[in-house]
Design a protein around this nucleic acid. Structure first.
Length: 153
DNA sequence: GCCAACGTTGGC
DNA sequence: GCCAACGTTGGC
């Protein structure tokens, strides 16, 4: 049973435009243990991801993407020149993980956070309850509702 | 720019 | 192992 996820990114850092241009990308830089555990252990190839723009006006889900490579060590953790460098990461214990995702679609109608908050069926979304988690699970019915809104229906 | 929420760190 | 201090995220 495939599962669904939501990945947050500040568009100034990496946006849906960047993903569309690149085709695919590695989701580096996640430095939160709960999110790390999802990336390392749970998220599987073929699963769908809602791409969310945070810290922007308005914050919104901007389109779906797809997981094309499952969890593997995030090399930026061991790169001293990276802003994501973590001295605690070693080859034996990489500490931080990432997955690769591919562009699938850009919503004609990005779905703002305010709309998510007032849409029936989305009351329990992790996004509105534990908003700071940058990689989070999405229920199948939530994915369905959000993609319908994003496609304009 | 403010500030609430909350994850992480470190002293004890 | 607790918990206060601190830092970061992210909506507003």
């Amino acid at each position: 049973m495939p599962r669904y996820w939501l990945f947050k990114s500040e568009p100034g850092s990496y946006s849906i435009d960047d993903l569309e241009r690149d085709g695919r990308t590695s989701w580096e830089g996640v430095r939160n243990f709960q999110a790390r555990n999802l990336l390392r252990d749970e998220i599987a190839v073929g699963e769908q991801v809602l791409f969310y723009h945070s810290s922007t006006q308005p914050p919104a889900v901007v389109g779906p993407a797809e997981v094309v490579r499952a969890g593997y060590p995030d090399p930026t953790a061991r790169d001293p020149s990276s802003r994501y460098h973590d001295p605690a990461a070693t080859e034996e214990d990489p500490r931080w993980y990432m997955v690769d995702i591919a562009f699938r679609e850009r919503f004609p109608n990005p779905v703002p956070l305010a709309v998510l908050k007032e849409t029936p069926g989305l009351e329990k979304m992790v996004l509105t309850q534990r908003s700071r988690l940058s990689v989070q699970p999405v229920r199948p019915e939530e994915f369905e509702i959000v993609t319908r809104l994003g496609r304009g229906g």
